[in-house]
Design a protein around this nucleic acid. Structure first.
Lengths: 195, 195
DNA sequence: GACAGCTTACCTACTAGAAGGTAGGTTGCC
DNA sequence: GGCAACCTACCTTCTAGTAGGTAAGCTGTC
């Protein structure tokens, strides 16, 4: 028993989020329980309430972390890729990556459950979509400027369309367990923005 | 007390489906209960089990009826509208109509819950999508023939893309309670198929 | 440097309520 | 009297959540 061994050094709260995140993305928020997490972590349900007093708080932390990481990924795309077109491809690949892990976009699945979500979570789901859309709208305007993308109408509207298409592509592809279904929606989308 | 008054003349089983259908499309399959239906119908939970022995059977009946009606609507579109382009518009409007009722496509929401669905229901969700896709693929080929639609690649792939886009548009539009969000995805889709 | 008091992270044992579901009885029309 | 459609009265299992306790590690004071 070394000094910090019994203390289980690594954040249980963080591991709770890891497990819950996976369960949400596979089953949905109302289809996993504290008991599921407890079993997987090897501690009791009661201990979980020490870290997050209720499921609503856990859910909120879940979206917050997810959105943070997503925004980080967007920043990296902005930093690493030169033109709007290749950034858009990278954005699409973010979604494809989630699907490759046999998961659904967290906020996509939460959108489906929206009516049964705690209030605090609802606002965060909306915010996630808004932030995505803002990022996409800027990308679209950049693309028009640098000549790598073109489209008709307002960037905000097109951004809404892109987001919807990608979420839908994930939603429908997952029951089939077939990534090509995602591509079937994503490729024509990209094509229509470069034509 | 007229002849068939106490007998509640109109099929309770059918009214169960009506209520359950609405609840599924708003909350999802795992977020409504027999108790919800019982309350709304004004009879006891136990009576519901007389009509559908379990939730899985109810769920199956739900998809079956929904798919039947949807297919009828597709037949009517085929019968009433002359060209592929206007048929596609009518198809998109079927989706918009669901959203106008503040509902999500039943099979869209079931797709989100897919991993927690009874086996029999899973197969039916897939079948619904397959039938839609088959209908759309034929429509796309007709459109190529009659010159009202054009696209690149296989009709089946484009059909997948259309389905995904519309499901996604509904999914994202609903938390916002904003039909324009649906249009933002649907209009460019239609445009890209007529360009 | 010891010991008091506090904090962290867990535990056992429990609650109330909701879930799906069942057994068996009642009602009223044909 | 038979049967459809309901009922009362349960049961089990699962749910989130609570009460209260404990072992171990920190921290500040004398």
């Amino acid at each position: 028993m070394s000094v910090a061994r019994n203390r289980k050094e690594s954040g249980t709260a963080e591991r709770m989020l890891d497990i819950a995140e996976r369960l949400v993305q596979i089953r949905g928020f109302s289809n996993f329980s504290y008991a599921d997490i407890a079993t997987e972590l090897g501690i009791t349900k009661a201990s979980l309430h020490y870290h997050y007093p209720g499921k609503a708080e856990l859910g909120l932390a879940l979206i917050t972390r997810y959105a943070e990481r997503f925004n980080q990924a967007l920043d990296e795309i902005d930093r690493d890729l030169p033109d709007a077109r290749s950034r858009l491809e990278a954005y699409v690949d973010l979604y494809a990556g989630v699907l490759r892990n046999e998961r659904m976009c967290m906020c996509g699945i939460l959108a489906a459950e929206y009516q049964t979500l705690p209030d605090a979570m609802r606002a965060s789901v909306i915010r996630f979509f808004d932030e995505n859309q803002t990022w996409l709208a800027k990308l679209l305007e950049d693309g028009r400027a640098d000549g790598t993308l073109n489209y008709v109408g307002h960037a905000e509207d097109v951004a809404q369309g892109i987001l919807s298409t990608l979420e839908g592509a994930m939603l429908v592809a997952r029951p089939y367990g077939d990534l090509r279904r995602f591509d079937a929606a994503a490729k024509p989308l990209l094509a229509s923005l470069t034509a």
